[in-house]
């Protein structure tokens, strides 16, 4: 009788550890994107001052890195309670009802994020299959920046699902697994 419950609890804990790991990875990736964005800009300014010519790929890669800075941290921000909502109803409902509503909203949010992530994965997939390249001089394969970008949005879905599981298993909405 304790067998299935223990297995369930173990699986829940494992899933939440996976979510936490993905969130930390996203934080790292977004931080790295920000630092690289600064480094790329400084290199471009310096190189232009020294050689008179720019790097050539600075504008293009600034665009990709900006996109990654926006998306890679999406999941981690869920874990931090960083995304914005209007707690109009949630704050007025009694505790069990508020928790049930929050679970439903987290699942719904995860569903929306899954749709976005699936769309992006499909978009990246056709980029990869067609071998689509950027129209810039670098001819970068578009699937290369699009893949981590899509993963960032997938991370949002995962963290929202994790949030639903935390709430459903009596844990706090944010915090350690």
């Amino acid at each position: 009788m304790t067998g299935p419950m223990t297995t369930g609890a173990t699986m829940t804990a494992a899933f939440l550890r996976l979510v936490a790991g993905a969130e930390r990875l996203g934080l790292w990736g977004a931080s790295l994107s920000l630092v690289t964005l600064v480094a790329l800009g400084l290199t471009e300014i310096g190189w232009r001052a020294i050689s008179g010519g720019g790097l050539g790929f600075a504008v293009e890669y600034t665009g990709y890195l900006t996109g990654l800075a926006f998306t890679l941290g999406l999941g981690w921000a869920v874990g931090q309670g960083g995304h914005i909502r209007l707690p109009f109803l949630l704050a007025r409902l009694p505790e069990p009802a508020a928790r049930r509503l929050d679970i439903a909203l987290s699942l719904m949010g995860a569903g929306i994020a899954v749709a976005a992530a699936l769309g992006l994965v499909a978009w990246t997939w056709t980029s990869a299959v067609e071998g689509a390249r950027s129209y810039f001089a670098s001819r970068t394969l578009l699937a290369i920046p699009q893949a981590p970008f899509s993963l960032g949005v997938a991370g949002l879905a995962l963290s929202l699902a994790g949030r639903a599981v935390r709430l459903a298993t009596g844990r706090t909405a944010t915090g350690r697994p």
Partner: peptide
């Protein structure tokens, strides 16, 4: 430093000794 719109015009501008900015 000259604005260019694509790879081909970028290459032309570079060949001419200007700095292309696409």
């Amino acid at each position: 430093r000259m604005r260019t719109y694509d790879r081909l015009s970028t290459a032309l501008v570079r060949q001419l000794g200007l700095i292309p900015v696409q």
